[in-house]
C-alpha cells in the first residue's frame, strides 16, 4: 500500500496532464493553472525545508568546529544579514539591499562566470591532444573554426576558413546536434511514460 498509493497518484496526475494538453476548454486551463499554483505553493514550503537543511549543516559545523568552519560563519552571516537588511531597509531601488546585490553579488557571479574562460583553455588543451584519430579530427575542426572566426585568420586563408567554418556549423555540427536532440526527445517521452505507467519505480527506493 505504501507504494501503490504514490504509483496511483503519479498515474492519475500524469494521465490528467496528458489529457489536459489536448483540451483547450477553460475547465482544462483552470485545472492546469490550479496545479501550477499548487506546485508554486509546494516549492515555497520546500524552500523553507531547504534553507533549514543549509542552516542546520552550517550551525553543526560551527558547533563541532569542523575543518573550515569559518566559511560557515560567512554563509550564516550573509544569509541573516541580507534577510534583516531586506526586511528593515526594504528591497527597492537605492536601498542597501539592492546595493549589496548590485555591487557584491553580481560581481561575484561575474567572477565565477569569468573562470569559464580559463577552464575552457585547460579543457581544450586536454581535448586537443591528438592521441587518437577522433581527437585529431577535433583538433583540425577547432583550428579551422578558430581561423574562420577571427578576421586575420580569414584574410590569411583568402576567405576559405570562414566558408569552411560555416559549412562545419551548418552541416556536420547541425546534423550531429539534431541527431542527439531527437534521441533526447524520445528519451524524455520514454522516461515520462515509464514513470506514469509505473514501469520505472526506482524513485520509490526499490523496483519491487
Amino acid at each position: 500500500m505504501k507504494k501503490r498509493i504514490p504509483l496511483f497518484i503519479v498515474f492519475l496526475v500524469g494521465m490528467l496532464m496528458i489529457i489536459q494538453f489536448f483540451i483547450p476548454h477553460r475547465l482544462s486551463v483552470t485545472f492546469y493553472t490550479g496545479f501550477l499554483n499548487w506546485f508554486t505553493a509546494m516549492v515555497l514550503f520546500a524552500l523553507i525545508i531547504g534553507i533549514g537543511t543549509l542552516l542546520n549543516r552550517h550551525f553543526k559545523k560551527i558547533k563541532r568546529k569542523d575543518d573550515d568552519w569559518g566559511f560557515s560563519i560567512v554563509t550564516i552571516t550573509g544569509f541573516f544579514g541580507m534577510l534583516l537588511i531586506g526586511i528593515f531597509g526594504g528591497i527597492g531601488e537605492g536601498t542597501l539591499f539592492m546595493k549589496l546585490f548590485e555591487f557584491v553579488l553580481t560581481p561575484l557571479q561575474a567572477t565565477m562566470f569569468a573562470l569559464l574562460a580559463f577552464f575552457i583553455a585547460s579543457a581544450a588543451f586536454r581535448a586537443f591532444r591528438a592521441r587518437t584519430f577522433e581527437a585529431s579530427l577535433l583538433l583540425i575542426a577547432a583550428l579551422i573554426v578558430m581561423l574562420g572566426r577571427v578576421p586575420i585568420g580569414d584574410k590569411l586563408t583568402f576567405g576559405f576558413a570562414s566558408t569552411l567554418t560555416e559549412w562545419i556549423f551548418r552541416i556536420p555540427n547541425m546534423a550531429a546536434k539534431r541527431g542527439i536532440q531527437m534521441g533526447i526527445a524520445l528519451g524524455m517521452i520514454a522516461t515520462s511514460l515509464k514513470i506514469i505507467f509505473g514501469i520505472e519505480r526506482s524513485w520509490l527506493g526499490s523496483d519491487d
Binding site: 542527439i180 531527437m182 524520445l186
Partner: peptide
Amino acid sequence: LLGEELYAASAYLSRKKELLGTLKTLDIMK
C-alpha cells in the same frame, strides 16, 4: 552519457526486462 543515454541509464543499470523493453522502444522509434 550523451543525451538519450541519460534517460536509458536507469533501465541499463536495473537490467529488469520491462525496463530493457523501453530501451528497445527508443531504437524502434528512432
